[in-house]
Amino acid sequence: MSSQPLLEFRALTFERDDWPLFSDLCGELKAGEILQISGPNGCGKTTLLHILATIQAPTTGSLHWQGRDISRCRQEYLAAMTFVGHQTGLKLSLTPRENLRWLSQLQPLSRCSSGEALARIGLAGFEDVPSYTLSAGQLRRAALATLCMTEAKLWLLDEPLTALDVEGIADLEALLLEHVAKGGAVVLSSHQPLVNRAVRTLALDAMAEAAH
């Protein structure tokens, strides 16, 4: 077992108009770990995930992927990371299968076919209907189907539990556990606690209070 963390963030500060949303955030994520970012609305969970996904740049601080600064190896990092945002990223006029086919051309999603992934996440029979006929929970499932297909080591999930029913949450937890058992790592944001003893929590509100 290597002890080098997969992802490490050092002294992350994010200011909006010189007002710190969070400051001096440090942490690391080793293979096999799940990190849950928790905190009330507006505390910066999504922003932090966007920073980890390199969608947004932090005001100061740095990200390191397997010990290397991410600005030096961004392509490699993008190939090893998958991000499922708060918005599903699905086109409502396309079918789930078409959506996944498009995404799998852009990102390394070749572990299984889109059909298998949709079946696994409980959308068998809905592969070829327009996405606008799906419910919010089904759309969320379709977005999470990428997790069955991705080869990425690191998963960044922004509010993945939104709109999921009990069964959906169980399916997702099973996916997460399978992923970390194989040496992957997960960062997810959620305000509800995941029923999973392997989860480590980073509470942003406590950080924010400490910063002020």
Binding site: A53, T54, I55, Q75, E76, L78, A79, M81, F83, G85, H86, Q87, T88, G89, L90, K91, L92, L103, L106, Q107, P108
Partner: peptide, 19 residues
């Protein structure tokens, strides 16, 4: 942008200008 697929496009390891 509104449905989030733009972010997925931008997170592709392929060069963004080409996409």
């Amino acid at each position: 942008f509104d449905d989030g697929s733009l972010v997925q496009l931008m997170l592709s390891p392929q060069p963004l200008w080409l996409l």
